[in-house]
Design a protein around this nucleic acid. Structure first.
Lengths: 104, 104
DNA sequence: TCTATAGTTCGATTATATTCGAACTATAGA
DNA sequence: TCTATAGTTCGAATATAATCGAACTATAGA
């Protein structure tokens, strides 16, 4: 079962993270993943856009080190790399997540 | 003495802030302003790029609500809008500033 | 009023992103 | 082995951004 390559956390640049989080679609994906608090498939995170568009956004989130994708069968399970990012850039992702959910 | 228009803090979107901070040049401007802890002219913040390029980046930082520019004589004094942003998006800008300066 | 200084605006060029259909890959299950 | 499902890759069209020279605006000071 072939897996997708991800950058190691020390390869991740702050600008990559900022860039990945500057798009509303990607911000929504990240917000949903955080709220769900569990791995989700791309299908579940579908924002009624074509698969190829969603795939593009997942690619950027992966490249930025924000999302990790594990292949399980025919599904791709996505999870946030919160702990790692928190370690390298304390507060950055967490404060963004908090800004996305003012109600908590 | 004509002044430059800025967005009010409630007009500022999180995506604007993320986008503005996704560029290395702008991130450096923001980092320098934060380290200086005082208003600085565009000239002082010059990163040996043409004036028109720098002006473009300041425009984006202003539009994102990150930088406030006051005209004093022939100079434009730039300051970070840290308190306001902190109020609206707690931790977002501050964590980025901390990530820029790991030594403190 | 003239000149120098600081920065903006304009316009053109080039680079980078977004979007999405169509073709493709990999796996599960019949 | 066939088919359905999940997602990626490719390629082309369109949109958005970065870059920078040249012309412009506004002020300070001589």
């Amino acid at each position: 079962m072939r897996q997708i390559k991800h950058p190691s956390i020390d390869q991740v640049e702050l600008t990559d993270i900022m860039y990945a989080l500057s798009d509303p679609t990607r911000l929504e994906i990240v917000g949903r993943l955080a709220n769900a608090g569990r791995k989700m498939t791309c299908g579940e995170l579908d924002l009624n856009r074509p698969k190829s568009s969603m795939s593009h956004h997942f690619k950027i989130l992966r490249a930025a080190g924000i999302v990790e994708t594990l292949i399980e069968g025919t599904e791709h399970m996505n999870a946030l790399r919160v702990e790692e990012i928190e370690q390298k850039f304390p507060g950055v992702l967490q404060s963004v997540l908090r800004a996305l959910n003012p109600t908590q």
